[in-house]
Write a protein that binds this DNA or RNA. Structure first.
Length: 280
DNA sequence: CTACCATCCTGGTTGC
DNA sequence: TGCAACCAGGATGGTA
């Protein structure tokens, strides 16, 4: 689930548990996730003090004393499960267990193992292979209609594919790309380079609005996904088009067009949901 | 540059 | 009920 709002929610859940504390113990239960873990990973984290938990795009960044940062990506199915009880038996796919001095546990659970972690020099983070190609943070001041328009200029791919391209804007995934295009009233099939001027303004504003609302709702919960605190996110109840094939979008309902429900198409091998009435 | 495909994994859902 | 096919929040790298 983890797109920007879900990762932000996880970071907010982890911060009060980690910040200002030390890792008393780190348990690494397999040599690799998506990629091999760094050499001596658990040993290098042991007894380190945690300064800050923050987010960049879909990455969790945990700054440690000694000038290093633990970088985590949740992939498709990664979760950070908080447990106060170190006697709770480990669940299947609990790959990494972080234990703080206070005895609190955070377990990285990832069934599909598309997630990964790395340990990097904090000063070189932005230049790391993970972060160096990322576009602007969509909720930052550096992202705006004109900035988006410039990034889309001359791009002959679809606007949906462009929104998923982390070099254009960082942190948007399949759900929020669909939702933002609906709010902006833009067809997912539209050529990216045609999103200029007012359309780019509308889309940038839609991206900000959708992500902000999703964060306020604690993200979207699919299946049994829970945020770090153990509570369910509830933005999935606010989806207008995502996973709504055959249902009426708010726009179609308002217009009384029961003949124009949400459609599902496949772009780049991934499902896109859109309202044929409202999105042009 | 672009589109398209396969790939890394497991598990839940759907359809026969 | 059983089983196989299909689908899923991400990202990369190869090919044409």
């Amino acid at each position: 689930m983890p797109e920007l709002p879900e990762v932000e929610t996880v970071c907010r859940g982890l911060a009060p548990i980690f910040e200002g504390r030390r890792f008393k113990q780190v348990l690494q239960r397999r040599p690799d996730l998506r990629f091999p873990l760094p050499r001596d990973f658990a040993a290098r984290l042991q007894d380190r003090r945690i300064e800050t938990v923050r987010r960049r795009a879909k990455y969790i960044l945990i700054d440690l004393d000694g000038g290093e940062t633990l970088l985590c990506h949740l992939g498709m199915s990664g979760r950070m499960v908080i447990s106060g009880d170190d006697k709770l038996p480990l669940a299947p796919h609990d790959h990494i267990v972080f234990v703080t001095e206070e005895g609190r546990q955070v377990r990285f659970n990832d069934a599909r193992r598309f997630g990964f972690m790395d340990l990097l020099e904090t000063a070189r983070l932005e230049q790391s292979r993970h972060l160096k190609t990322l576009g602007p943070e969509p909720l930052g001041n550096a992202f705006s209609g004109p900035v988006l328009a410039a990034a889309l200029k001359g791009r002959r791919t679809s606007i949906k594919a462009a929104l998923l391209d982390q070099r254009v804007v960082a942190g948007i995934g399949n759900i929020y790309a669909c939702e933002a295009l609906y709010v902006a009233g833009l067809s997912p099939r539209r050529l990216a380079q045609t999103v200029q001027g007012g359309r780019a303004e509308r889309l940038a504003a839609a991206v900000k609005e959708v992500l902000t609302r999703a964060i306020a709702a604690g993200g979207s919960s699919l299946r049994d996904y829970v945020q770090a605190s153990g509570e369910l996110g509830y933005f999935q109840h606010e989806w207008r088009v995502y996973a709504k094939e055959g249902e009426l979008s708010p726009a179609s309902r308002e217009a009384g067009r029961a003949d124009l429900p949400v459609r599902r198409i496949v772009q780049g091998g991934r499902s896109t949901f859109y309202c044929p009435l409202h999105q042009r």
